[in-house]
Design a binder for these strands. Structure first.
Lengths: 236, 236
DNA sequence: TGCGGTCTTATGGTATACCAACATACAGAA
DNA sequence: TTCTGTATGTTGGTATACCATAAGACCGCA
């Protein structure tokens, strides 16, 4: 009897894919990919036509995206695609640095051969996409690299948070990653994180991780072309 | 001409308070306060009767709460109040430790006389409610203490995240805080954080903050009466 | 008595109808 | 020409209607 042939494996878990879930997924992707301009209005009836669903569905999806921070409601006018201020982006990078560094350190503590192999695989994928200079490929590869790290440490909630934050800076990330790639420093920095994990050195891995995020933040700042003229001298 | 008599002050900002927003607020409070049992079903039509609004409103509110993690959808059955596993709580305390320590350190770096005065006020309120042994009062006081800290450092997004996380462990928090109060260690720990901020010592403040969260997590674990028999030996 | 089939009902998923408010365009008067 | 009042249309807010399905009750048959 194969392991999968257990009684439990018989259970039918229908992912019944309600209209709402599909619409949510598509809307999210549309916003993240930049199909809808930041600040652009999301006219409900228009979206109904585009997606082929009723307003109920659209409105519930918008509520969800609103709670995720991808959509803002402006009173008496309706939903718009959330704009990204540099100050928000700065904070997001800062939070990511904290959460990712923690996850990386934990991962380095407990990483087994198996985990390291998975990470290596993700790195190879990253190299491949880097050589092809495929921004979206790089982003996916980076994402799965980190996902393995968070999963290994059991940081499911932190992963949720990071994913959500990342979706808010997705456009920035694409530019950041390809820019980092052009300078060939991006993959190198991630390799450094991996090096720390490989020899189970939490401090080194965490340090590399912080450096990586900080570098990304700096590139992002340059791209946004804004000064971090924040009144709040929070640490970077 | 008084300062408030400017042209700008004429602007009418209607907080138009849509039904949805009010319903959202009430539902959230109802869940947080434990009026709805964790795991309990949230039957839409029943909620309509209770709140006196239509299903559209209820459903959109539920979408929002779902994205916040307070409500879970179970397929073909509808929404239930999210249950809290100890593993989730553990992760939440861990994330809080990271974010709050960062915020506290930043606050200690830049805290002015004014900020310190505000914090002292919050502390006094905490003392007052502690003596009265009023769990909800303690919780509110603690919340405003931290809110001042996050606001001072400009960590608006981190504050959002922490608030959201806290609402997921609200029941636990009430018990934790009053328990900590009974042992009289809670207020003392918070005072320690304040001490670090008062003499602008980021490291000391952050350390006290981590200690405070860790203590809360330990109490929470005892209360939940479960072993952290996690497969993932993540740091505590 | 136990099993299977069927009917009922409760419930969520989806669509649509109605309304109030805001914005725009336009017409008329000073 | 410019300003103001009005009409109209677009849009979000809210309520309701309809449908499919799943869970439970009930009944009849072996």
């Amino acid at each position: 009897m194969k392991p999968a042939d257990t009684i439990a494996a018989l259970r039918i878990e229908t992912p019944p894919a309600t209209l709402r879930e599909m619409a949510l997924e598509r809307m999210r992707r549309a916003i993240i990919s930049g199909l809808f301009e930041p600040g652009g209005r999301l006219v409900e009836r228009t979206l109904c036509d585009h997606l082929g669903v009723s307003r109920s569905v659209i409105r519930e999806v918008i509520r969800h995206l609103e709670a995720e921070g991808l959509v803002e409601m402006i009173a008496k006018q309706g939903p718009i695609v959330a704009r990204l201020e540099w100050d928000d982006a700065r904070q997001i990078y800062e939070i990511r640095a904290a959460l990712e560094a923690t996850a990386v350190a934990d991962c380095a503590r407990v990483a087994t051969k198996d985990v390291k192999a998975q990470l290596r695989e993700a790195l190879d994928e990253l190299d491949r996409t880097s050589r092809q200079n495929s921004p979206l490929g790089i982003l996916d590869a980076t994402t799965s690299f980190y996902q393995i790290i968070f999963r290994t440490g059991g940081h499911t909630i932190a992963w949720d948070i990071v994913s959500r934050l990342n979706s808010r800076i997705s456009r920035l990330r694409v530019m950041t990653l390809s820019s980092a790639n052009r300078m060939t420093s991006g993959p190198a920095q991630i390799r450094e994180i991996f090096a720390g994990i490989e020899c189970n050195d939490p401090e080194a891995a965490a340090k590399a991780c912080r450096a990586h995020v900080a570098a990304a933040a700096m590139i992002a700042e340059t791209i946004l072309g804004e000064k971090a003229s924040s009144v709040h001298p929070a640490s970077v």
